[in-house]
Structure formats: C-alpha cells, structure tokens
C-alpha cells in the first residue's frame, strides 16, 4: 500500500503561551508500497508528529494524505479518522500495556474493531511468533516480563490489527545491542512475508543502513531529503552534520578510505556485509603491495 503525503503542515496551538507553533511545514513525500523507509532527524524535528499525522491520529492543518491514490477523509462528524491500514508503535510502547495476560493484551485492538474470538486467538498465536516469543507467553502476565519482552508484546499488539504499513517510533530505545538487532530482524521478516511497508523512526544510523531502502531527513519540521541511504550518507555528510546528524560507521569507513586513496569504492549498499569485504580486500591488497 502506497502512502502519499501532500503539502502537510501541522500547527500546534499552545494555550499557555498563546502561540501557534508550526511543527511540520509543507511536507510532501511518497512511501512506496513494501518499502522500508527510515525517518531521521534530531529530537524536536517533528518525527513523532509526522508519524501521528501519517496514521491519522493528528489531522494536518494544511495538506492531505492519500493511500493508493485514495484521499483519507475525516469521518462524518469531521473528526480525524485513524487509518486501519496503518499501525503505529509508540516510543516505549510497553507503557500502554494494561491487561492481565498477554493474550488479552493482544486481543485488545481486534476487540475494539469487533473481531471474533477464534480469529483473535489464531492471529495471536501467529503474531507472538512473529515478534520472537513463543505461544507459552500468551498466558503470562505482561507485568512480569522483562523490558525487552514487554516491548515485543506491545509491538505484537499493534501487528494484531494486520496493518499494511507499520510505523515504529524508536522501537529499540534502551535495549541492548542484541535485543535491538533481533527486534529489527523480526520486523524485517514480517515486512518480507506480507509485502508490508515499514517506516522506522530512529537515531541509530547503523540501523538505518542495515534495513532502509530510503531515508527521509527532517529538520525543524521540514523535509530536507528523501533519498537512498548510500547517496545520502556519502554525499550529504556536511548537510547532515549541520543538522546535528551523524552518519553510519560504514559510511565513515568508506569516506575515510576515499580520503586516503582519493577514490570511492563501489559497494552494493552501506550494509556492513556489503562494505566490510570490499574494504578488507582493498586494505589487504595494499599490505601485499608493501610485502
């Protein structure tokens, strides 16, 4: 499912200061169906607001969203409608857990949408597996799980609703490296299985290059770039730096090599597995030259 934003502007009115703050300014972008897109930007650049606008949780002041070319309209009362095809995993999603068992927690969303019980149980068994937990977890209390497991349950509870597009707002914050990788792996598998779309908001540039096909860069509420990670991180380093953004390790490595050799190595992507062997070959070659 293709999601397109057209000239989105979002104003936030603060009654205390009596000021209107423009959080998002004229954002137009298209998220291709089945892609993994990462959104990067400093804290306060409007990433989380953009995610909410994408789901319909916030209604843009100006502009509109379309999905597969169809305009998303407010409901009859003129209130925003949350798109059922878009799932949103908030920061620290474990804070939303409230049920006594994981199964009930997973059933929460579907029940709100009027699913049958059997369908819910079936889906729950499927989904708990997707997030890397086994069926025995369904009867456990979410409260007694570890931080990482809670996080997985919360993600599963969003997957229950069978979204076609999944937006995750820093889903791995506070997790250790292995936990981080394994959650992202699970999400990647889910994406591949159903040709789903993933939109990942993150500060981890290394995660961006491992998974994303496209990167959206936000700065002060404006969309600065939407391009593939390789050209972004290799060619726009200064621009990113001026926005307070770092570049991934693999890009640093390639640029360092470019600096000493004067030449850029051609790589398939900025994934570590694509970069490391190339670099090693080059450096080894250099050593043998000396030997």
């Amino acid at each position: 499912m293709e999601l397109a934003l057209e000239h989105i502007q979002y104003d936030y009115y603060s009654p205390a200061t009596r000021e209107v703050k423009q959080v998002l300014t004229d954002i137009s972008c298209t998220i291709p169906s089945g892609a993994w897109v990462s959104i990067i930007g400093q804290t306060g650049s409007g990433k989380s607001t953009l995610a909410k606008v994408m789901q319909g949780l916030l209604w843009p002041t100006v502009g509109q969203n379309t999905m597969d070319g169809k305009l998303i309209k407010p409901n009859k009362k003129g209130k925003p409608t949350i798109s059922p095809d878009v799932g949103l995993v908030f920061q620290y999603p474990e804070h939303q857990l409230f049920e006594t068992t994981v199964l009930k927690e997973l059933a929460f969303g579907p029940r709100n949408r009027g699913w049958y019980k059997d369908a819910i149980v079936n889906k729950a068994q499927q989904v708990i597996d997707l997030v890397g937990l086994d069926a025995s977890y369904l009867e456990k209390s979410p409260l007694h799980l570890s931080g990482g497991e809670k996080r997985r349950v919360a993600i599963a509870s969003v997957l229950m609703l069978e979204p076609k597009i999944l937006i995750l707002d820093e889903p791995t914050a506070g997790l250790d490296p292995l936990g981080r990788q394994s959650i992202l792996q699970n999400i990647e598998e889910w994406r591949r299985q159903g040709n789903h779309t993933v939109i990942l908001i993150t500060h981890q540039m290394n995660d961006v290059v491992e998974y994303a096909e496209e990167v959206i860069v936000l700065h002060k509420g404006k969309l600065q770039f939407q391009m593939n990670p390789m050209s972004l991180f290799l060619d726009k380093r200064e621009e990113l730096q001026s926005m307070g953004l770092d570049i991934p390790d693999t890009a640093k490595l390639l640029l360092a090599i470019e600096k000493v050799t004067g030449q850029r190595i051609q790589v398939a992507s900025l994934k570590e597995l694509d970069v490391m062997p190339q670099v090693l070959t080059l450096l080894k070659g250099r050593r043998y030259q000396y030997d």
């Binding site: 909410k52 789901q55 949780l57 009362k77 209130k79 949350i82 059922p84 799932g87 949103l88 908030f90 999603p93 804070h95 939303q96 929460f108 969303g109 579907p110 709100n112 949408r113 509870s157 969003v158 609703l161």
Partner: peptide, 14 residues
C-alpha cells in the same frame, strides 16, 4: 501519550 497509543489501537473515546 497513553491516550494516543490506545486510540491508535482502535479505542474510540467519543
């Protein structure tokens, strides 16, 4: 935050 999260899981507060 929690209201937003639950709304996005389909709760209708209105």
């Amino acid at each position: 935050r929690i209201i937003d999260a639950q709304r996005s899981r389909g709760v209708q507060f209105d």
